[in-house]
Design a protein around this nucleic acid. Structure first.
Lengths: 386, 386
DNA sequence: CTGAAAGCGCTTACAG
DNA sequence: CTGAAAGCGCTTACAG
């Protein structure tokens, strides 16, 4: 059943046509010394005419590069929060790879174990020259594994330290400061008069989730906010948990937060839906901020104030670091731009504080708000469906 | 600078350990006849102990499979409309590939020419066993190219016919009926009393865009609608063009449509924003339908009525057809489920028709509506920013 | 049932 | 500057 494909030409074909040895052809085509300019030119011409391209397999078998880098996305079916971010990242990675005709071997697996197994397999099969690693996490087993395999790797995000804070010599990373980004948000909100801030966070074991939670606490403390008025609630990035967590912080018996920071666009949009269904005006009664701007954050009413960064560039930089490492360069840790908060429509001054006394702890009675919390949105529809 | 990686074991290592020849090891490990059960078992045990995996390069060099399939996404920077669809598709493709340890070589390029160049290069470099092709288009050069190269291919969507309607013997396809899906929408809207329907479509050269436009016309004619009351407006899938096209159809001097069908979630959300900014109630005064349900269509207020299908399954089926073709099976054309309309909140009965006489053409004066078209949304904010 | 040999398409020392 | 040879890790006829 198999069709006979057009015949591919090989070094041998070129050697015969150009009437030189195969090795001369190899040297000529690879721009290495050992052939006369005249021969080189003649060989090049023949190769072009035959449409020759080096066999990736043959090259790889010689221990040369496979001209392929790998990227594994461990993505449980329910955690779809990072799609926009991810496709933009890949798009940037491709920009860096395209110039050197390097392919991206892409794999989606359900969990971290499968991801590690994939690295082992790719290494044993000699399928990739190196890998790009996303979602650094607490106690991350991947840096040690990749070092052990000798597989060059570039982390998108800081490389988690091993035991004893040991660095990993064969691993580069490109990172952006979640700490400073969160501190910037807190300062901005504080400047607008907000004193009670909630943070609907992502998966708790991811390094950047922890950095954001810690930064929120630290910055709030530095600004003199009451620790009880600042809280992070982790989620699995699903819309449903975004809804639940938002409801939880808004439905509190103590003083309600006047601002909520969301770790993704999906969570923030879910939160906006909850606010609408509770009749809480945004930004009049509640300020919302989303971590990554996207088509989602720009499509709501009001559009969501969001952290902006050049995600394709982030991916491009990571890929460039990986290629440099594969080429034999030293492992590097490079800081990328810190995401900056761009106010759109969902953030504003804190509402007059009727929920608590000017000093001391908040009263435990329910905080009255401008609109009754149980009032439904104008359409009479319920909250965002999960 | 290069680190010394852990040593990979080879057939030779196994042969020495098991004290048999390399060829015996090869036969044993590949489950082929020619070795005794005892030898086979011993060889297997040694291979497992050494953590042996076949070298992808060596296998490929033998003319065997590369255990890789390719997927190229020609994606101009401004056409980001299909992201959710695409990641779901890839996720489904991976499900089919994972079971057989086949990798997905993934490439993002700016345009069709670059895509074709990529196929040629992959073929010449013997990098993939076959390719998955998305976005069939009018006058598509890819079927002929892939046939010429003898590169097995599976289209996601119908394969466009060549000149003279010739089929392509080496190409499979998995398709869903855009024609019937659109007809279903039109019937649904007609049943709700809608008589003026607009269609904000995607890129006009894509085959499915044309099928949807044609189906809209045909079904409207079949139902006796006035052709002048039914129109499709192509876009580049960008939010901005979604806004512009929506404004254009709503701001008409003739009778305004009472229902708009959008080819993607992004376009539909943009359209909902325009309606809000014009003070047009959805679904009271205007019904909106989006082609593919997503986290976007579920996050708006009201949530958007949308076409639902199992996109991961669609991708999985396409990948399965490709693998069957690579294995030497016949090319097949398989129809997948037709997307079905699931009403959420953005669709409802057509408003009482005050815009035109019961018979004959619509008057050319501006159609009065329940709310003045220039009235702003309650927040006083403008339309969705572009 | 098993081993020795040739070959896939390339690269790389090593002689001339 | 150029050719003949060996080898990368595997598979596949072909003899024994």
């Amino acid at each position: 059943m198999r069709r006979t494909p057009s015949r591919r030409s090989t070094l041998k074909d070129i050697a015969e046509e150009a009437r030189v040895s195969e090795s001369a052809v190899s040297l000529a085509l690879n721009g290495r010394p050992g052939v006369s300019p005249a021969t080189r030119q003649r060989v090049r011409a023949v190769a072009d005419r035959l449409g020759w391209q080096p066999s990736a397999a043959a090259r790889a078998l010689n221990g040369d590069s496979t001209a392929t880098v790998g990227l594994v996305l461990a993505r449980p079916a329910h955690a779809l929060g990072a799609e926009f971010f991810f496709l933009q990242l890949v798009s940037g990675i491709q920009e860096a790879l395209a110039g050197r005709s390097i392919g991206l071997l892409f794999l989606v697996v359900p969990d971290l174990d499968a991801e590690c197994a994939a690295y082992r397999r790719w290494w044993a099969e000699r399928r990739v020259d190196g890998v790009l690693v996303v979602d650094p996490r607490d106690g991350d087993p991947r840096p040690s594994l990749l070092d052990e395999l000798g597989l060059p790797a570039a982390f998108v995000g800081s490389v988690p330290r091993g035991e004893g804070g040991s660095a990993h010599p064969g691993i580069s990373s490109v990172w952006a400061s979640d700490t400073r980004a969160m501190a910037g948000i807190v300062q901005h909100l504080h400047g607008l008069g907000h004193r009670r801030i909630a943070h609907i966070a992502g998966l708790p074991h991811l390094a950047h989730t922890q950095q954001r939670m810690r930064s929120l606490r630290d910055e709030a403390e530095r600004l003199g906010l009451d620790p009880a008025d600042v809280r992070s609630i982790p989620t699995d990035y699903s819309r449903q948990q975004g809804v639940d967590a938002t409801r939880q912080v808004l439905d509190t018996h103590g003083a309600r937060p006047t601002a909520i920071v969301y770790d993704t666009d999906v969570l923030a949009v879910a939160g906006l839906g909850v606010a609408a269904s509770l009749g809480i005006e945004v930004p009049g009664a509640l300020t919302l901020v989303a971590w990554d701007e996207s088509v989602l954050t720009g499509s709501t009413h009001p559009p969501l104030s969001a952290l902006v960064r050049d995600t394709p560039a982030f991916g491009r930089h990571a890929a460039e670091e990986l290629l440099a490492l594969i080429d034999g360069g030293p492992a590097r840790t490079v800081e990328d731009e810190t995401p900056r908060l761009v106010p759109r429509g969902s953030s504003g001054p804190a509402p007059a504080d009727r929920g608590r006394a000017p000093t001391g702890r908040a009263p435990t009675r329910r905080a009255p708000t401008g609109r009754a919390p149980t009032r439904r949105a104008p359409t009479g529809r319920g909250p965002t469906p999960g």
